[in-house]
Design a protein around this nucleic acid. Structure first.
Lengths: 109, 109
DNA sequence: ACAACGTTTAGATAATTAGCTAAATATAGA
DNA sequence: TCTATATTTAGCTAATTATCTAAACGTTGT
């Protein structure tokens, strides 16, 4: 889930997801929408894929990416829920990241 | 809005927001929940504040931070909307970041 | 006025990130 | 098989980020 938020922290990647919402697209087709190099876009795709937000499938000499909605849903809605917008409005404050404070130490690590 | 997503990309900062959801807290009180130094926490607070996600108010020798829900709501819900979860399910793909591709150039900058 | 407390600023460092060009890989079609 | 096309990998750089310790700042209470 942290990977999802990291992936979403870049505007280019957010837009890729939005483009992919309409229909699956090849890497090249997606790249044509952005003023950056193909390799840079390729790196963005990798980040999105590692977060589970997109999936790839070879098709001839292209690679077609498609949006995986469920992952985006789970992350965003899951987080939103801890703020009372989803359901279960109380006693959920530390659930989202599954991290739950190690300990209240400050002068150790 | 990009600042909000950037702010949310760090797990510590997400947890700060969640803690602040329950009630306003001082910098020190918040810091006690994390295994990092006060200065580091102070930097996180600054990021959250610059994104508009929290607001501070002096109180004696403490500084009390409170969550600004509306900003979080606008960003998350605003983004979610472009994926069909909010309302207006179509023709909204390029609205979210107000960025709308410069041009399909790739070998220029 | 002074000492203690709570927080931030300064200054440094190591790790991560986004970007580039050039080269490698893989597939399609002639 | 050769050539063109599509995408990624390699290798680099500049900018940003998260973190630390030490020092400064501002407020409270004596």
């Amino acid at each position: 889930m942290n990977k999802v938020f990291k992936a979403l922290s870049d505007p280019t990647r957010r837009r890729v997801l939005q483009l992919l919402r309409e229909r699956p697209m090849s890497a090249g087709e997606l790249s044509d929408h952005f003023p950056v190099s193909k390799p840079t876009m390729s790196a963005h795709f990798a980040v999105l894929q590692q977060a589970g937000l997109i999936e790839s499938q070879k098709s001839g000499r292209s690679i077609v990416y498609r949006l995986v909605m469920s992952v985006l849903e789970e992350a965003l809605l899951g987080f939103a829920q801890t703020f009372g917008w989803g359901a279960d409005s109380k006693r959920t404050s530390r659930v989202a990241d599954g991290k739950a404070v190690k300990r209240p130490l400050k002068g150790e690590a």
